[in-house]
């Protein structure tokens, strides 16, 4: 992985650590979309882009209660960082990891929508 790409991945990771709120999510979507084209890790970045994009859409109506927000993003930050760490080391991102983040996201977003 080139130094330039690793720097972008590190920036994306810092953005994720900064919080999965709408303003950050919109930037994450754009960067994952770009990285899916600029690296060979098409599927992991495609999955991350779609997770972040759906989170952003879910939050598009404005503020949410802190508890609801925590439910919405439960396990997503940790899984996303795990995926980025593997990509950074040029390691294979196993399908089980991608399924895990997708499963958590689908569960979270359905709970979130049913609560509103």
């Amino acid at each position: 992985m080139s130094h330039h790409i690793n720097r972008r991945i590190a920036s994306l990771r810092e953005l994720i650590k900064g919080g999965l709120h709408q303003e950050n999510l919109d930037k994450m979507v754009a960067e994952c979309n770009a990285l899916s084209q600029d690296t060979s890790f098409v599927l992991p970045f495609f999955v991350l882009k779609n997770v972040f994009n759906e989170l952003s859409s879910a939050l598009d109506r404005g503020a949410v209660a802190v508890e609801q927000h925590q439910d919405l993003i439960s396990n997503i930050t940790e899984s996303a960082i795990l995926i980025l760490n593997k990509i950074e080391k040029n390691e294979l991102v196993e399908i089980e990891i991608l399924e895990s983040i997708a499963r958590d996201h689908v569960r979270n977003i359905n709970i979130f929508r049913s609560d509103r």
Binding site: G18, G19, H21, Q22, E23, N24, L59, G62, A63, V64, A65, V66, E67, H69
Partner: peptide
């Protein structure tokens, strides 16, 4: 009134939904 996360990520004890 309550504990909210705003779209900016800031936390607030109130929220104004003008819509």
């Amino acid at each position: 009134h309550g504990d909210f996360v705003l779209s900016s990520g800031a936390k607030s004890t109130y929220y104004v939904d003008c819509k």
